[in-house]
Structures are given as C-alpha cells and as structure tokens.
Design a protein around this nucleic acid. Structure first.
Lengths: 137, 137
DNA sequence: ATTTGTGCAAATCGTTTGCATCTGA
DNA sequence: TCAGATGCAAACGATTTGCACAAAT
C-alpha cells in the first residue's frame, strides 16, 4: 500500500494541494486496487479509518479528483454517482439485481462502425455498459 | 399524429388502463417522433397542452410505461433520468457541453468480443454511449 | 500574508410516498 | 361495485452552497 509521500507526489502532479484530508482520502481510495466508490462509502471508510472529514469535503474531494484525472465518474441507473479509481480505458458490467458495477478489462470489447460525430465535435470517450441479470429462464 | 383511439389500443396492449391522463400523456410523448423526455419536460408540455396532471402522476406514468415496454429509461451523467420513446435497439450520443442525449440509429455501432457474463447471468442489454464535446483544439 | 481548503448547517433538486378522493371496467 | 388511478403535500436522499474558520504555500 502506498504511503503518504507517494500520495503527496500524486496529488501535486494532479495540481492539487496535498492537504491532510486529501492525502488520507487518497490512501483509502487508491490503497485497495480498482474500486467503485460512492460518496457515502468513502465517508464511512474514512470514519472507520479514524479520519475525520465532513461529507462536504468528501464531495469536494471526489469532484476535484475527477476534474484532475485521478478518478472517473460513472452514473448508471441508480440515483447515486460512483467514482472509479481506474481511469484507464475499460468498460463495465452492471448487475441489475444488485446494482453493482464491475470493471471489464480493456482488450475485450471492441466497438466498430462508430458514426462520425457532428462537425466541430470530437469523441471524448466511448462507454460500453453490459447490463446483466440473473438468468430467470 | 396518432389520435386517442390508437393510444387507447396501445395502452391496452401494454396492459395499462387507458385513463384520461395516460392517453393524454402518451399523445404528447409519442406524437412527435423519437425523443428523450425528463419528468419535468413532460410536465411542462402537458401544462402547455392544457392537460392538468400532477407531477406525481407524471412520474407514475413514466415508470409504468417503462415497466411495460413503452419507454426506456436512460441515465447518463446528469442527475435527472430521461425516458426514451425509442425502445428499439439503438445507442446514444451524449453531448457533454449541453448534456443532450441523441439517438444513434441502429446498424451503425457493432460491439464485439464481449466477455462471457458470469455463470447464471445473462446479458439483458448492451448500452453504448459515445460522449462528444466541442472540439477545443 | 494570501490563497485555497474545510466543516457545518441550511438549502436545493429530483423523485417518492401516504392517504383521501375519483374513475374506468 | 371496487380495484386501480390520481392529486396533493409532506417526506426523502443525494448533492450543493454560503460562510466563518483553519491550514498550506
């Protein structure tokens, strides 16, 4: 697991001041591999880890991280937004029953025959969501 | 534009009682080709058309229609849910700047190399969202 | 010293719910 | 008749905001 100094560096590279809270939250977020966090989840994990942060700061942090490329926001169906610690090129499975989002490794899905975007527009990203459910035959 | 009797039939086929409100809302929804409506939009259009419905009924109707296959719910990014009057097989452009959702005709996009869904699961749908933005070179 | 971040509580906003009243079959 | 719909207002849950205080450069 990465420690404070690594996180400080990572935050500085993202042009974010490495404040106590941001470093602590970054450790929680990035310390356990790829994950999909909601604000509430992160808030609880922070409390459990003994880090005292307000929910407002959680939201601020998630958005700042997203704006600066440390996280990717995904909103599929459910009312709450999830933040993906994996910002690389990949797609998702969405389990309709449990409302869970799971990464699909890159290299699997290929998207072909994309129509041209309208003039003056450029594609910023292509998201593929494979919705799956229990096989109720 | 389709008229009352067609809508009544359509609602009955979807196993929904053709009440005054549902028929009126269906006409507004389906009378102008494929569209992406939010609850608020539909509410305003109904008022403009002189149809007195409460917001609660708007929500009820949108969900009942969705459950019975007359609409498809899509939630991309923004906080509000949109309902697509096109329930056929197709994908979407999402304009990041204006937060607009636009249909992409079927036959264009091809998705290949989908990984197998986990055991006991079946794919219920594959959504492709092409996010585009203004070309800021 | 300045700028930027944080915490708290109140405010927003989309959506849902409870319940009394109506309506279609 | 009477299950199913509707309307209203109150309740909700996620997110945002305003502002005073604290911390980072």
């Amino acid at each position: 697991m990465l420690h404070d100094l690594d996180m400080e560096k990572r935050l500085r590279e993202a042009k974010l001041r490495p404040t106590r809270q941001r470093v602590a939250l970054a450790e929680i977020m990035f310390g356990k591999g790829d994950r999909h966090l909601s604000a509430e989840t992160l808030y609880e994990e922070a409390r459990e880890a003994g880090v005292a942060v307000s929910l407002a700061t959680i939201y601020n942090t998630l958005h700042q991280f997203t704006d600066n490329g440390l996280l990717r926001a995904i909103s599929i169906d459910s009312s709450k937004t999830y933040f993906d610690t994996n910002t690389g090129n990949h797609h998702h499975f969405f389990f309709e029953d449990s409302e869970e989002v799971v990464d699909m490794p890159d290299g699997y899905v290929t998207v072909a025959n994309l129509p041209e975007p309208p003039a003056g527009m450029e594609v910023s990203r292509v998201d593929v969501i494979v919705r799956v459910r229990n096989n109720v035959s």
